[in-house]
Design a protein around this nucleic acid. Sequence first.
DNA 1: TTTATGATTGTTATA
DNA 2: TATAACAATCATAAA
Length: 165
Amino acid sequence: MKTGSRSRGATRKETKEALKPAEDRRVGKRKAAPKVDTRKGKKEKKAIKDPNKPKRPPSAFFVFLEEFRKTFKKENPNVKAVSAVGKAGGERWKSLSEAEKAPYEAKAAKRKVEYEKLMNAYNKKQESSADEGDEGSEKSASEVHDDEESVQEEDEEEDDDEDDD
DNA sequence: TTTATGATTGTTATA
DNA sequence: TATAACAATCATAAA
């Protein structure tokens, strides 16, 4: 199978994914030759500058992957390679119809809303933090009043009537 | 011991 | 507009 299906940096729209050299699949290299230093804080592994910064919401594909991983691991308990699940998940994802991906996209959309909310609180924190300059100043934390835990599934209704493929 | 890597696609963000 | 980076995962390899 073609491993280098598509690199997230080449408008994976429908660009010929076939002409993707192996070097293009440096997907995992999020820290390899960073062009711009604006978002240097890739993972809070080394450069933990903003531990409070909310991570980007999982895409519909990632939401699907979370569930797919469980199934995949269940049927393939011997396979522990992340790449295996990724490949299988990728093929499976494309195999799904829009109606099938609908619930995943809906979930992803919800995640995005929460992400924006977290970003809002995060931005506020940045302002207050910038003033004090001390990371220990959480006095304004109460002002933010961002209850992430409050963000629970309030509605789970899904119209399964849409079954047109 | 600790951190990066690999592989998938989607989404976000910046230049 | 377009490209680059990052989101989860987990065993393994390397420093």
